[in-house]
Design a protein around this nucleic acid. Structure first.
Lengths: 171, 171
DNA sequence: TTCAATGCAAAGACTTTGCAGATGC
DNA sequence: GCATCTGCAAAGTCTTTGCATTGAA
């Protein structure tokens, strides 16, 4: 192995894909881009930029936030990574290897844990709704908000703080 | 009509609900809260704070942004208004009167138009997925991203900019 | 009168941008 | 070598917070 091909020990087997994408686009394959991509490719779950940054630090890499943001933009554009917005006020990123793209999420409103769920029916539903509106569907995202099993077991209850039946009860 | 009951001309018939909620919670019913709520109740679609602010200016109201944010928080808590995050980098608000809560959205990736869609199947699916994971579902949100009919007619095409088949094509 | 809300401006959190120096090709 | 990237810091955007003043009850 040459130094160029194995600059990163235990690099993700998917890293070459990103290299190829960069070359296809005429973009330089820099060390920073490779390391950032590798962190994302070798992590599971939904990473925030802050989490990516701290994993880089664990590896002894000192890469500026701006570079991380710029690299994430390219990764998303490449189709190798997807970004999510769960309403935390910042984006989260997830690589698309190793499983069918899962876009169904159970989000706990109490502990903010996000659980991935797989279901083929949503795919079908997406097609049906899109067709009905002349819409060309590319991807979907289903979020179900509520309480996870752990929080329920911990005694947390789901309280609806609003009015019981607004429309029927004009005083 | 007393001045108190009709401070706002052509006020939304739902305004009294918000007044009642405030009293229930022991919160003062202020002019600002009423006007902000009325703007939201009498508008359709998904309003950003900036849009709310400009509609207030059109009415000749001069209400600080902080007050708008604080009022929106209460409105969401009251259950009369729902907040959305379509990934624009800011929240949007929608009152829940006049129709079933619609949480299915077709989002055009080109012109960013959001179309509401109604479908009962999603409700059923939510229950099913939640049950399967011991999750207590409160609400859901289904976003389908793609190209709207108008943009398609306008010649916009949905291009996948990434690699054709990443996992099978490691070079 | 008394407690809370308002409005302003400052601070905060996340993200983007500008530019001098470094690096890929 | 030339174009592009990187890293830092500054700026930008949306949102929250602190505090003196105003207002509801």
């Amino acid at each position: 192995m040459s130094a160029i091909e194995s600059a990163i020990p235990m690099a993700s087997p998917y890293l070459p894909l990103f290299r190829r994408y960069l070359r296809q686009q005429g973009l330089p394959v820099t060390q920073q881009r490779e390391v950032v991509a590798d962190v994302v490719f070798t992590s599971s779950g939904h990473l925030s930029v802050e989490e990516i940054e701290s994993r880089l630090k664990e590896r002894g890499e000192r890469i500026g936030k701006a570079t991380i943001y710029r690299t994430m933009e390219i990764l998303v554009r490449s189709g190798l990574v997807e970004d999510h917005d769960f309403g935390d006020g910042f984006k989260r990123y997830e690589h698309l290897f190793g499983h069918h793209p899962v876009r169904e999420h159970l989000i706990c409103t109490h502990c903010r844990t996000v659980t991935e769920v797989q279901d083929r029916q949503v795919e079908r539903l997406q097609g049906e709704l899109a067709r009905r509106h002349g819409f060309l569907a590319a991807r979907h995202r289903l979020e179900i908000h509520g309480l996870c099993a752990d929080c329920q077991a911990g005694g947390v209850t789901l309280q609806y703080k609003g009015l019981t039946c607004p429309a029927l009860d004009v005083a």
